[in-house]
């Protein structure tokens, strides 16, 4: 192989679009908003001199999916010819559901998970609060009720719909 690979940021973003959240496979890590920055070192490379730095931030501190995501980013970049890959974790500014893309929210709903309300209501220490209106992803009713603030993963709360009676996950505000 004598081909030179020209690394540019756009290529890397496109590759990362194919890396999904292992727990919510319809969402890419770009949809989730956890890729914060991409840095390119020595843009024209014959591997392994050039490299790429990917800066990611966890949704929740203890999210076990992060290790898998880190590995999948590495795999995706390796498959595309990158060899010098540096994945860094940054904590500040802290991830917020506001960083989830609109496209991501639509995909969530289609998958059966209510997407985070854009107006965040329960991120304060006040007690017994509920989101004003969480829409059922199955029948679109707003007549829903929280069952538990903690759901099947750190990022979700458990709800039920009082109309279609189906339980569903709500990607809670953060």
């Amino acid at each position: 192989m004598t081909d030179e690979i020209i690394i540019n940021e756009k290529t890397v973003w496109e590759i990362l679009e194919t890396v999904t959240d292992p727990e919510i496979p319809v969402l890419s890590i770009i949809d989730l908003g956890i890729v914060r920055k991409i840095e390119i070192y020595n843009a024209v490379q014959k591997p392994p001199s050039g490299g790429v730095g990917v800066f990611i931030t966890p949704t929740y501190t203890g999210c076990p999916a992060m290790d898998v995501i880190r590995m999948n980013i590495r795999m995706a970049l390796l498959e595309n010819g990158f060899t010098n890959i540096d994945i860094k974790t940054i904590l500040s500014p802290a991830w917020t559901t506001d960083w989830m893309t609109e496209e991501g929210k639509q995909k969530l709903k289609a998958y059966g998970i209510a997407s985070p309300n854009s107006k965040q209501q329960v991120c304060t220490p006040g007690l017994f609060q509920e989101e004003e209106a969480v829409q059922c992803p199955h029948c679109n009713s707003y007549h829903t009720q929280m069952i538990s603030r903690f759901g099947s993963t750190a990022c979700k709360a458990l709800y039920k719909c009082n109309d279609c009676k189906e339980p569903f996950d709500y990607f809670k505000c953060h």
Binding site: T61, I90, L91, W95, C123, P125, L127, R149, F150, A154
Partner: peptide, 19 residues
């Protein structure tokens, strides 16, 4: 940075345990 990140989680813990 750790505190900023963790605070958001602790708010949920505090609400839940208070209730």
């Amino acid at each position: 940075a750790i505190a900023e990140k963790a605070l958001k989680e602790v708010i949920y813990h505090l609400k839940w345990s208070s209730e």
